[in-house]
Design a protein around this nucleic acid. Structure first.
Lengths: 214, 214
DNA sequence: GGATAATTTGACCGATTGGTAAACATTACA
DNA sequence: TGTAATGTTTACCAATCGGTCAAATTATCC
């Protein structure tokens, strides 16, 4: 008789590892587009190429699948901020943080959209993680930025809103990809748009628009 | 016998105006959180305080409701960009554009989320509007910005990515509101956060972070 | 006030939803 | 190679989905 997944205590078999990977991959495809409520187990099963009861053998509910996915994404999603080095040079740290976040938007757009979907719905499944680990990490890095500002290395500015603005500008290229492509037109919506975005954003954050009064 | 709404040609009655307004208001509540697929007519009917068949008397399908809502939101959503004055002073135009967009994120977060939801799903219902009217408007304003750059009034920069960055940074406070509140903590997530954001963003766009090499 | 048009609702439909039961197939391991 | 554990599928369930219909109710206008 099959043992329900949650009750298993022994280490996972090869098949379990493989299949769970396939399922989460398919779930990412579906959840990232339609959100939790808008996605169905049948859709995920079809993308994964297996039967619905087979999915439910590995994840007992739709919510468990979403949970596993969100947990994994949430961890890797904060990798660039964790890599933000307090001892580094302010300019190069901010530049490379922007670059890394932009690369993630380019290489992992589904992960970005999954997260965005969850935020739009009011983060019903991850609010604890936001108030806990996320807030702690941001608090820590905000202190670093504040110290830089007080040392005169960068302009005085609210470090939290600085982080928000880096998040939003970079993730925009994943979450609003359709809009970006539509506005840029077919000519400029190739992969080169990430180069252009990187160049623009680095300039924006380092120099601003250097507006001169007419 | 009742005449289906779409076939009516005479002017709308008072009741029609009122009820359609109530329905769209309720639909905005629901669609903005759960997206099109994740929302149900029953949910909207409950929020609107009327029976499901009554909703369907005014809007023949769920899609028609969403359509009417998106059309209206799309128009008002571009109001600030339309108000962007080519003959104005670059600094004050950009400043007030940021301010206006931020006010919209504060005062109309549901509209922002409705739009974000549609983008995340690949804009299946509005891609034409993006490639048509939206692109035209952005093209026009991008030309203005480009002219300012060439006249040396602002730094040379990609005007499209400039517009994207204003969109993303401002709308972030509506779309990712839960995250912003979670990170800022209960103390700083009152309405004052929009003042802080406005101050930070205006500084960012005008001066950048004015990073000085150590 | 009565006729007519507009509005509202309860009952219902077939399709789809998340999830289950149990039979069947495959794998791991002695 | 046998057998017990693991993995897979078909058939199915109750609940919910978008939407229809006809009857009942209300507003409008003469």
């Amino acid at each position: 008789m099959a043992i329900p997944r949650a009750a298993r205590t022994q280490r996972r078999t090869r098949i379990q590892e493989e299949k769970e990977e396939i399922i989460l991959e398919a779930a990412l495809d579906v959840f990232s587009v339609s959100g939790f409520r808008g996605s169905t187990i049948d859709q995920i099963a079809e993308v994964a190429g297996m039967s619905k009861p087979n999915l439910l053998y590995y994840f007992r509910t739709k919510e468990a699948m979403h949970r596993a996915l969100i947990d994994r994404v949430l961890f890797t999603w904060l990798e660039p901020l964790r890599a933000f080095d307090s001892n580094g040079d302010p300019e190069s740290e901010i530049r490379s943080y922007i670059r890394r976040k932009l690369e993630m938007a380019r290489d992992f757009p589904r992960e970005s959209r999954l997260f965005a979907n969850e935020m739009l719905q009011g983060a019903p499944h991850v609010e604890d993680e936001l108030r806990g680990p996320l807030k702690s990490l941001v608090d820590e890095k905000a202190q670093v930025i504040r110290a830089w500002a007080q040392a005169g290395k960068i302009a005085k500015c609210d470090p939290y809103h600085l982080i928000f603005s880096i998040w939003s500008t970079t993730q925009h290229y994943a979450d609003f990809d359709v809009q970006v492509r539509a506005v840029l037109g077919d000519e400029h919506s190739g992969e080169g748009r990430f180069e252009d975005a990187a160049r623009y954003l680095e300039q924006l954050f380092v120099d601003g628009l250097r507006i001169r009064q007419g």
